[in-house]
Design a protein around this nucleic acid. Structure first.
Lengths: 176, 176
DNA sequence: TATTTTAGTCTGGTGACAAGACCGAGTTGC
DNA sequence: GCAACTCGGTCTTGTCACCAGACTAAAATA
């Protein structure tokens, strides 16, 4: 949060993590990156975020080494770095909690399963079949039983109506 | 985030979770609750948060069912509910990420181990000895090798200088 | 009972965010 | 190659959240 003004006196790694990913919208931007979104306009359409704030968040994430801005001769794309991919357990844990405790009784909007064996993950992110915790690149995200009543029509929402392997780009590369 | 103004159009459990715990300071308040802090003044002294904001966060967490305000004839205390305790994996994942990627090369400020067997947890929160994921009530938090250069002197920081079982109250009950 | 601590509330100044206009570079249709 | 359009931003204005610190009533302590 606004470098320097944050949780500075907190000698705590949680506080330091929140300096990077604790601001409004940041986690949702990253979640979309895991789903394969890489372009400014796709994030803008999928999240209802103001352009200025999205610009600011992307710049902060690049600065922090969580995203990489790839600008070679097309529209720029934002990719998760290793540090960014390592945030997956945090995002998964939070969304599982949202599933269970914020909208109790409702069904999950998306489910995650291990690509290699097709087994659905438990709430800790474990694959019960393999007894491992697969990384995000080994997961399939699919619509769950509790889908949106009023579905969105942006490109990201449309792509997520069928199962997708995570981290695969939403659009074909603009170079090539 | 300010009920109604939040991530309303996002049909997503992550967004709903962030409505509850995504605001500034909220995660740090909850972390302290896991460490056994239950009183307004202790939170105020340990986090450098303004009184008004702390009041607001506590009220929001009580409203959301994450904390319970226990007010019987002494100073009020705030306890984690079941929903609150279920946030532990999220908090642990974020602080592990902070350890590894925000301050690389430095050592963790705190380490967590399984009370039953004494084994230190891995970065996914698993006990390598038991091959389980212990809940917060079964964990010991202890100072790690990377302690603060300039230690704080508030009651919470002092109590955390030696190993403690999580969720045990920092102070004796004021009733009794 | 007098004093101190605790758990708040209230106020004023500052910074973050939302909504939307604007603009130059990149891409597409012809 | 040129016009039209899309994309990735920047800028402006109003509103809202946050911080610092003064203030207060109830609870604990001497």
């Amino acid at each position: 949060m606004a470098l320097g003004t944050g949780y500075s006196q907190q000698n705590c790694n949680l506080a330091r993590a929140l300096e990077v990913v604790g601001e409004r919208w940041t986690m949702l931007v990253l979640r979309d990156c895991f789903y394969g979104v890489r372009r400014f306009s796709d994030l803008l359409a999928h999240l209802d975020i103001s352009r200025a704030v999205l610009t600011d968040r992307l710049a902060a994430l690049v600065e922090a080494g969580v995203l990489l801005r790839v600008a070679g001769r097309g529209h720029p794309e934002y990719e998760l770095t290793e540090a960014g991919k390592a945030l997956w357990p945090s995002i998964y844990a939070l969304s599982q909690w949202g599933d269970q405790y914020v909208s109790p009784g409702s069904y999950p909007g998306r489910v995650f399963s291990h690509a290699e064996c097709g087994t659905r993950l438990d709430r800790f992110g474990r694959c019960p079949g393999c007894n491992t915790i697969p990384g995000p690149e080994d997961l399939i995200v699919a619509p769950g039983p509790g889908e949106a009543v009023q579905p969105r029509s942006d490109a990201v929402a449309v792509a997520l109506r069928e199962p997708r392997r995570m981290l695969t780009p939403l659009r074909p590369r603009s170079d090539a």
